[in-house]
Design a protein around this nucleic acid. Sequence first.
DNA 1: TATAGTGTGTATATAGATATAAACACTATT
DNA 2: AATAGTGTTTATATCTATATACACACTATA
Lengths: 133, 133
Amino acid sequence: MELPIRLSKESRVPIYHQIEAQIKTLITSGHLAAGSSLPSIRALSKDLEISVITIRRAYQDLEYQGFIKTVQGKGTFVAEVAESMKEKIKVSVVYEAIANGVETALQHEYSFEEIEGIFQQILSMKKNKKKEE
Amino acid sequence: MELPIRLSKESRVPIYHQIEAQIKTLITSGHLAAGSSLPSIRALSKDLEISVITIRRAYQDLEYQGFIKTVQGKGTFVAEVAESMKEKIKVSVVYEAIANGVETALQHEYSFEEIEGIFQQILSMKKNKKKEE
DNA sequence: TATAGTGTGTATATAGATATAAACACTATT
DNA sequence: AATAGTGTTTATATCTATATACACACTATA
């Protein structure tokens, strides 16, 4: 299965960390069920045009954190993660991302009304995009 | 003058880049006027508890991008930047930050109503914080 | 007007994190 | 046993952050 992962080469966040975060999102959001197999490090490497080593680094970290299991010679699989844990991570990640946006706007001296306006603008744009699908 | 800069050691974004981004924000948001002097690299180094070299790296990058001017033996000063340019950068940074928050929520399968709810919750929290000041 | 002192930015060398390629080892299937 | 799939290990290059030593510019004062 091809994972919907988007990397930003311009970002200063390490690639292995971007991959980690996005796979974690796929698991906590329920897009990847426990037991299902992840792409091999070579397959994902080819798909994302990133070296095998970097993919492996991301998988290693995810395994250490308990999100996946790797078996030599067989492949890599999504681990069993308690639903409560998934929910906890999900909420904190989303909350933090939105709060960061608001905080950034405040630092740039935008008023609460202006922030609300920009937010609604972005939201309606996303709604339209979703309709097109 | 002491700059209101907050660094995150946990973040995967390089420190010099965090410093760059925040000083850029202070300039484009109007908190730092053209011609005013920035803290010396040693003063900022001591303030942020970061090595002199890393501060210098950030200042170098900002100078290359035209936001500041450094003069050996004298110090570092905010450069003249066209108001239109400041506005342009400001808008794109803020817009991107808020859009990122919305996008993250969508990736986690939150509905538009839920996203709106979280946003309002964060906004009202920030409003209360501002009142306290 | 020398000059010592303090403040400024600059250059070189080193340790750790990040990303890569190539060679190795295990597993399943033929 | 051969082979095509998987993950693993080793070695190398670049980026990030640091410490240390240096050179330049102003200011007070002898």
